[in-house]
Nucleic acid binder design. Structure first.
Lengths: 271, 271
DNA sequence: GAAAGTCTTTGCGCCGGCGCAAAGATTGAA
DNA sequence: TTCAATCTTTGCGCCGGCGCAAAGACTTTC
């Protein structure tokens, strides 16, 4: 087992697109300042390649550029924090590329991963509708490109494109549904089963086919998987070890490949 | 300890209002058919007495009657099911009086209480925005009066009163926030602490001051509290017994009075 | 390429909470 | 009033999962 190396180039997050232009700009430290022109062409590719079923659903394509242009382009390096639980919520964000991790911190110090925000998804809608603080912390699980709109801008946009409000509502309803499902799992299932489900969920969102199976394409430590499933890193480690012996997964340091998804699904469903 | 009897009249759910008219009509089995006139006067009282911050927020009061009138008035007896997890979502509901229990059923048979819907709150917004099935089952935890709008009606209303869409979004965002908080609790806290928090939460929503303390004004079994906190009825029973010995609560069959809320809060926060 | 830092594995012991079982309490129906 | 149904309590035993500790594996830095 061990270590199939990650594809080196042209891939980050789960969107494939011509990344050259962006990389050139970034290498000159200017990525965050680019608007319009070539760069927005890239955005358009992203928007189309995704099931952008959500935020821009039923908004005519010709307006996408305009809408993105009204926000600020924000790049976050891996591990950096985009916004922090408890801070006043001022902006909502759309992820173009990369992956955000939303966490919540418990008084007694324990951290819980509430959700991952993938390319094409929106987060912190709360900023637009409530005079409140962010309920979670958003960190970049991989280097990420985002667009952030502040409250007033988004309100204006929603007045201009009422469909945006509807879409946002759809997003919120979906998130609620998803979280309810996970709440149920947390109550009703044993740890190993939950770990299996979590792994499969992440795999579906960020899986990358390789010859050994489906590789999860971002750094995912035992600790992090534990925080996502409500358990401890020891328990996760033991589960992965056991599954590796059965040939279901291949795991290395912060890297997991699911080599037998079918077996894992069976286990997730029947215990 | 034991058995302080529930106040007999004029109270149900957590709204106080002149209930006579309604009761007269109901006793003749006609409550479900009443619209407009006197009855809507009652509704108006309800709407004002609540922190209706939500669904009707910023909608001029003169329109409330009209909006309610567009829906169907539906009465559910205690224990009856309003809609069922997995059925096609056709209607969303507003609770006027009483309390709904939203549950989700796990494959392996375990039931989880996802949320309670109190007077003044809306549920099943999903029916309006998605071609989906209800993600939860709604049962009446006490006899309840609701207004149900079907999909098209609500879409029309939202076109007429765009504020309704905004309010609905606010509701969804709030629910998400609340569920995230409970998800965190479930991951990070011990059972007894969670039971304490749940009891306090329910108390705040449905507490009724009595001379012995704050009585939870609807039937709440150990089993149900267990399903709300992700544990078993045995564990809940043991916790309540222990707290009763400490003088924090007084509990009887399907009935709980919190006699020392302060102690319970301390326990909930510090374990 | 050596050393420091970080992540992972695994043995071991412990305990919070589960769940059966059986008795007791309360309620509703006949 | 009695009986059946339902809910609650509590003793007892068990075990899933936690968490320490220490060694091993992998990465990064200089």
């Amino acid at each position: 087992m061990k270590r199939t190396s990650l594809p080196k180039k042209g891939y980050n997050g789960n969107i494939y697109y011509n990344i050259k232009v962006l990389q050139n700009y970034r290498s000159k430290g200017r990525a965050c300042k680019i608007f319009g022109g070539i760069f927005l062409e890239t955005i358009s590719v992203i928007a189309n390649s995704l099931s952008l079923s959500n935020f821009l659903h039923d908004v005519a394509e010709k307006f996408h550029t305009y809408i993105f242009d009204r926000g600020d382009r924000i790049h976050v390096k891996m591990g950096e924090t985009l916004f922090c639980e408890g801070d006043p919520a001022q902006r909502c964000y759309f992820v173009l590329k990369g992956r955000l991790r939303l966490t919540k911190l418990h008084e007694q110090g324990k951290t819980v991963v509430v959700r991952y925000i993938n390319p094409g998804e929106l987060t912190a809608a709360i900023a637009v509708f409530k005079e409140k603080n962010y309920p979670v912390t958003a960190q970049a699980a991989t280097a990420a490109e985002t667009i952030g709109w502040n409250k007033q801008t988004m309100v204006d946009l929603m007045a201009e494109f009422p469909q945006l409000a509807i879409n946002m509502l759809r997003v919120a309803v979906d998130r609620l549904d998803d979280l309810q499902a996970r709440y149920l799992e947390l109550c009703a299932e044993q740890v190993e089963q939950r770990i299996a489900r979590a792994l499969l969920r992440i795999m579906r969102q960020s899986g990358l086919k390789t010859e050994d199976g489906i590789l999860i394409d971002f750094r995912l430590s035992r600790q992090e998987l534990a925080e996502y499933t409500g358990t401890t890193l020891y328990t996760v480690s033991r589960a992965l070890s056991a599954w590796e012996k059965k040939g279901w997964v291949i795991s290395g340091r912060e890297r997991i490949t699911v080599s037998d998804p079918h077996a894992l699904v069976l286990f997730a469903e029947n215990g």
